[in-house]
Design a protein around this nucleic acid. Structure first.
Lengths: 338, 338
DNA sequence: CTGAAAGCGCTAACAT
DNA sequence: ATGTTAGCGCTTTCAG
């Protein structure tokens, strides 16, 4: 391993000078700088980032904590972070939180051990109090996909209510008036917000969503199937189905077809997220596009800024709005009104 | 930030003693160890990993380089690595190589700057020579999804030929004899290997695959659609279609249905990878399961072992075999023979 | 413009 | 069993 000393020795200067030219210091003579640069190139010298971190008490490393990278949603999140990090020349330290408070906290702690400059956290399980404490200790902490009022300026989140409203309105516009919902149980509150949005839009249209017409299950394909089967078993009639996310929507479509119902002819289905799967199913899924990657990049830049503490605390939050992607799972309602 | 000195001071011992109890050193008195442990807990002391890395010249950090985390395949890979890393108490430094030699190399270099103990590399674009050089310099480097003979013991790879044979044999068993293939262009050679496997199995069955019946496109949904449309336009007749991967298979199914052909009644389709999308499409995709996550975990453990250099170089490689997952996109051939 | 020197927090001899 | 000490590679005053 070639160190700064080696460079200094070969170039015939002190390590301080080498350090200066590395940092693009303008207090070095032309000739000297050129020589040092040459030696650096020849020797293939690369500064040891641990040594750097030790003395400067900060790193060019960003931490990311998400529940599980194997899920496409989180993969996209990670990718968005990576993109922004790369642009700012930061490295990424990643941890899965595995959907547990304990590992979520552990992950954060280990990130701190490494002196990460900033942390992008997709927290599902930590409570507000814990998060508040963390935020107080880590200037560069940004929450993605969660809104905590007192941490507003450090939250990058999606307006789930608005998204659900849009989805519902779209169905309403298509003439539907018999709705059903397959929702999920998720710590961060997203399902409730989406349900709120649905109810809100429906109410404006003078429709009340029966409790019976809302079925809860796990947020995956199987959950979607299960929920629809339950709906069907209860004899609920509906021409429009709102799913918590794409995976559940796809499961729903499977179950619907299995029951002899066609999508979208007999029932229209709308998802949420716009993952790649939504283009894989048939009919291709109409869904709300969740700009995760974009949000993640944004969150990353924000985290970097915050960590520099240049800014006064801004009294603004960072709210994204999903948008409707029309594909083939929604059709106009032609069923005779009952 | 609480340092080892703080702990030492409060506990009334020297930093060496603290260091010893941290490292579970057995050369510390019972009472003393208890006291130090107590102080550590009270102060919430956590060793600075940069300082540690600096002096010990190694870290508990693993590097991972994959093309793009937003692709589910690589997300799964990352997840597999994370799982194994977590079990061995390692942290993960990640970089996307973005499908470029340059960024692939940059990613590796930056990982080395951080003194990563080992590196898991999914290399697509670097040539053998580069990889050989890298391997010589980094004891803990493991290649995943690529086989280089002289680096055999550090390659964790999949037998693509065997996988393609299995897929083809399955179709053969189902009575098919009119085959078509949608393949892709990919640097790492996988498409060619799979094509080899297909030809091999077909040959054993006395069938020759016409050049015309092999269509090449990009390895995604659109590519699959495109390829099938090209096949159809050329008037190729087939009852069985082998796709390079799940995404292409799904695109193929879309195109087939669009052309009025039913899957699996009119044509059977088989994919490769077994990503989540294969359970999202209708009919659900019969495909070859690629145990990425398992392979990634294995590769990680191997990398950790190799980095310790405890072992003599083992003259064995690490070859995984994909297995068939039967779902609904393949049916027995009932079309009258032409 | 350049060098000397003091540490950053920690580990690992080497003492005691 | 415990303490003292010398660095790891680098940044950063402070001198010159």
């Amino acid at each position: 391993m070639v160190t700064i000393k080696d460079v200094a020795r070969v170039a015939g200067v002190s390590i301080a000078t080498v350090s200066r030219v590395i940092h693009d210091g303008h207090q070095v003579g032309e000739a000297c700088r050129a020589r040092v640069k040459k030696v650096i190139a020849e020797l293939g010298y690369r500064p040891n980032s641990n040594a750097r971190a030790l003395v400067s008490k900060t790193t060019n490393t960003l931490g990311v904590v998400t529940p599980k990278l194997s899920m496409p949603f989180f993969g996209s999140l990670a990718s968005g972070v990576e993109k922004a990090a790369r642009e700012s020349d930061y490295k990424l330290l990643m941890s899965n939180s595995l959907y547990e408070t304990k590992s979520e906290l552990e992950a954060i702690d280990s990130l701190r051990d490494h002196n990460c400059r900033a942390i992008i956290l997709h927290s599902e399980y930590s409570d507000e109090k814990t998060l508040l404490k963390l935020a107080a200790e880590i200037p560069g902490l940004v929450l993605i996909n969660r809104y905590i009022p007192s941490l507003a300026h450090r939250c990058v989140w999606l307006d789930n209510v608005a998204g659900a409203c849009q989805a519902t309105d779209h169905l309403l516009q298509k003439g539907h008036h018999q709705f059903a919902v397959v929702t999920s149980i998720y710590q961060n509150g997203d399902p409730e917000f989406r349900l709120q949005g649905i109810r809100k839009s429906l109410k404006q249209a003078g429709i009340t969503l029966a409790e019976q017409a809302v079925e809860e299950s796990t947020a995956n394909i199987e959950g979607g199937e299960q929920a629809v089967n339950a709906l069907l078993a209860k004899g609920i009639k509906f021409t429009a189905l709102l799913a918590y996310n794409d995976l559940m929507a796809i499961g729903a479509i499977h179950a619907l077809f299995a029951a002899g119902l066609r999508v979208p002819q007999d029932v229209s289905v709308i998802g949420f997220d716009d993952l790649i799967v939504s283009r894989a199913c048939r009919p291709r899924l109409t869904t709300m596009h969740y700009p995760v990657e974009e949000m993640a990049s944004y969150a990353t830049k924000l985290a970097i800024e915050l960590s520099a503490e240049k800014h006064d605390v801004q009294h603004r939050t960072h709210l994204f709005i999903p948008n409707l992607v029309e594909r083939d799972s929604v059709a106009a309602c032609i069923t005779a009104q009952k």
